[in-house]
Design a protein around this nucleic acid. Structure first.
Lengths: 218, 218
DNA sequence: ATATATTTTTAGATTAGTCTAAAAATATTT
DNA sequence: AAATATTTTTAGACTAATCTAAAAATATAT
């Protein structure tokens, strides 16, 4: 049996280590999980014993195939619940994350498969992240970050990197959401701010916004 | 902060003690929760300290108003999730309980209020049990048990006492569900079995079935 | 009312997950 | 390459929830 805490560590290792492939160091995990490095050491030992992770003292940790399977399944559940919350229960995209963090740990294959069907097999969550299917396969999207978009080109917003509620609220208040069409007007080399055109307005966004908003060419 | 385990103990005390009003003894709780009496003693002490329960050594335990409020809220969540599972996710009424046991502990007022609205404010769960509203008020139904129904009268099935999957599957296989209309044909004094008429058939049910099926006169 | 049985509580141990502080290993600087 | 700084691990302690076994209280039977 896998515990809730173990699941959360596996998820963190997965996200921090480029799908669990790259080695992740103790401090990074501790930081991401709001805990102490010594607790992380204990837990990665345990995950290693249970064959969810490969761990060598002082060398960081990666996920095994088993560990990766667990991680992808949690991500699938998390993102499906997010779709449910936004589409059926009127949550805004900045409110979903916290609740989904809990719902993702409910263990029932029937529950999640039926939810998937009820939502008509969505392939992206409300932040534009792909939802793995039952077998763990992701759809892949050729997205680029706004900071690297070309002046003059037109794009569709397909996702965000930072899912903090501050950032998402900022986007909302500027009428930027998933699917919003924008055109790059000007890049300011001085501070790396970017002027973009929306449907009915032009706004200037800072470098930090430009680094966190994903686009797809249209 | 209230833990998942504390919530489960509060729920058990509520159910065993006629809504937490009657005193419940240690062994009964241990039995209901698949744990040992000594563990129960420890926990009821803790619940008492936290003001969810009133406990005196060797005298059993009752719930405080706070404890009762917690219990009713969990029951509300449990039953709303059951409605969701049956109505939206194609669960049958014998499959819902286990998953709802987990979903009931998710803590988010918005989640549960929106779910309530999404389901159009149901007042009964799939087993015929009333769903408390936001303020904790139950609808009450004047239900009687099949064993006490009158020969010759017609009734609607409104609930079950035993929610074990064996019993629910038995009902399913005999085409008895919530809302089914039945007429009492004959009571056999010898073994307390009862002959009932359904829409297109007549069946004889045993005493144990008759004690676990709730009816409302129509 | 005394003896016996049952129930409940206490005492002490265990496990999962966490922490602090010190020790050990690795990385960086001079 | 030695000295210093950083990262990681170990050792030992803590809390929540549990258990077993023994002791204490209550209930039942004779």
């Amino acid at each position: 049996m896998i515990t809730l805490t173990e699941e959360n560590y596996i998820k963190a290792i997965y996200h921090l280590g480029n799908n669990g492939i790259n080695s992740v160091n103790t401090n990074a995990i501790a930081e991401a999980m709001n805990t102490k490095a010594s607790s992380v050491t204990d837990m990665v030992k345990k995950l290693s014993e249970k064959n969810y992770a490969d761990y060598k003292k002082y060398q960081g940790v990666t996920l095994t195939d088993d560990g990766r399977r667990v991680a992808v399944n949690i991500i699938r559940k998390h993102r499906l619940w997010e779709v449910f919350l936004v589409e059926k229960l009127n949550f805004s995209w900045d409110e979903v994350h916290e609740v989904a963090e809990h719902l993702e740990h409910i263990k029932s294959d029937k529950l999640i498969d039926e939810l998937d069907a009820f939502l008509e097999f969505p392939t992206y969550d409300p932040h534009g992240d792909p939802i793995p299917d039952k077998e763990g396969n992701f759809k892949h999207i050729e997205k680029i970050v706004l900071a690297k978009a070309e002046v003059g080109s037109t794009y569709k917003c397909v996702g965000v990197d930072d899912t903090s509620s501050h950032f998402l609220k900022y986007l909302d208040s500027n009428n930027i959401g998933l699917g919003t069409i924008i055109t790059i007007k000007h890049k300011e080399p001085f501070d790396n701010s970017i002027k973009i055109a929306l449907e009915n307005s032009e706004i200037v966004v800072s470098q930090s916004v430009a680094k966190n908003l994903y686009l797809k060419k249209v």
